[in-house]
């Protein structure tokens, strides 16, 4: 049986207490919410924190407030099940509900939180392996070594940011609220990420992601398409989130296309977005945008399925997501 390494367990009852504990313990402590990402990593000895600060007993982190008109705030401790099923979220931001509902399995969504999903560790199939496996192949720079096994000679780690909800959050224009010893700050979701497989978050380790703020819906049409081998369990090996606004006559007035699981952070396809603005979304327009969207994606061979397949699927999935958001029949698009 794989087991957790020993740790001290701290369960603060309030946000203030949690912030204080994190400040006090410094780098010896790690935050845990649902534990569905952290515990498997600890069992494989990717992390052996001396202390865990659990957010589960903090009531302030479990709210869902607001309306489609005013925008919504979601506490970071809300579970993925709730995000996928709350009528308020499902009606206003269907892509978000869909992305949350596409994470792994029902059991895992009952445990995993939306905050944890935004902070989930990057993945690489040279890294998400047991201690024995990694020792045998030689430790890589993300844990214990100094080389990259995917891109030899690389100075950086290319582990893949594989959250399902993060690309949707970016496409929606959401922001996150961080609270730490230095105080509280609100940043756009995309500013939370850095394209680096190791230091993939800009947030300080002692900062707690407390809530996510979603802007008013205001006609936003969203879709999320996820590539994976099986309909359950599997992480995305490509995720495409789109958010569109269409004028009465069908002209696109706003567009965001964000790819997940292709790099160490969500990737926004700005060139592709530009191709949509001011256009009616015909199949040709969508196709051109989809091709452009896929261009910045630079996946490496460190997930399930081949890199060339994932690259090739990027325009297909983008076109399907755009068609769905635009109200065209997704399967026949592109």
């Amino acid at each position: 049986m794989l087991r957790l390494p020993p740790f001290e367990f701290l369960a603060p009852r309030s946000l203030a207490e949690a912030v204080a504990l994190l400040a006090e313990r410094g780098s010896a402590a790690m935050i845990v919410a649902g534990g569905t990402d952290l515990y498997p990593n600890m069992k494989r000895r990717q992390f052996e924190p001396a202390a865990l600060v659990s957010l589960r007993s903090i009531p302030e982190l479990r709210h869902v407030e607001g309306t489609a008109q005013t925008g919504l705030t979601i506490g970071s401790g809300v579970t993925l099940t709730q995000v996928s099923q709350q009528p308020l979220i499902a009606n206003a931001y269907p892509a978000l509900a869909h992305a949350a509902g596409a994470v792994s399995t029902a059991q895992l969504r009952n445990m995993g939180t939306i905050g944890g999903n935004l902070c989930v560790d990057t993945r690489c199939n040279y890294y998400n392996q047991t201690y024995h496996w990694r020792k045998s192949i030689g430790f890589c720079m993300k844990k214990g070594g100094d080389v990259c096994l995917v891109a030899s000679g690389s100075e950086r780690c290319w582990a893949v940011f594989s959250s399902d909800t993060a690309p949707v959050m970016v496409a929606l224009g959401a922001s996150v609220c961080l609270e730490g010893p230095q105080g509280k700050r609100v940043i756009p979701v995309e500013a939370l990420y850095r394209d680096d497989g190791i230091a993939y978050l800009t947030k300080q380790p002692d900062e707690i992601l407390t809530e996510i703020r979603l802007p008013p819906v205001d006609g936003l049409r969203t879709a999320y398409w996820k590539l994976r081998r099986r309909g359950a369990f599997d992480f995305p090996i490509l995720g495409v989130a789109v958010a569109l606004k269409l004028a009465e006559d069908g002209t696109c007035t706003a567009a965001r296309i964000v790819l997940g699981a292709v790099e160490s952070s969500p990737v926004e396809a700005q060139a592709a977005e530009a191709l949509l603005i001011g256009q009616k979304l015909t199949r040709e327009v969508i196709e051109a945008a989809a091709q452009a969207a896929a261009r910045p994606a630079r996946p490496l061979d460190n997930t399930d399925m081949s890199l060339s397949y994932r690259k090739r699927m990027a325009p297909v999935y983008t076109a399907r997501a755009l068609a769905q958001a635009a109200g065209l029949n997704g399967d026949q698009a592109a």
């Binding site: 199939n125 998400n128 392996q129 047991t130 496996w133 045998s136 192949i137 096994l149 081998r229 099986r230 309909g231 359950a232 369990f233 599997d234 992480f235 399930d304």
Partner: peptide
């Protein structure tokens, strides 16, 4: 469809239930 005992750099590529793909109810 999917099950594959594959090797990379002289060791098993996917010795876990997540990476070794077996069909769920959905497949």
């Amino acid at each position: 469809l999917m099950e594959e005992q594959s090797f990379r750099r002289q060791q098993h590529k996917s010795p876990s239930m997540l990476d070794y793909k077996s069909p769920t109810t959905l497949e």
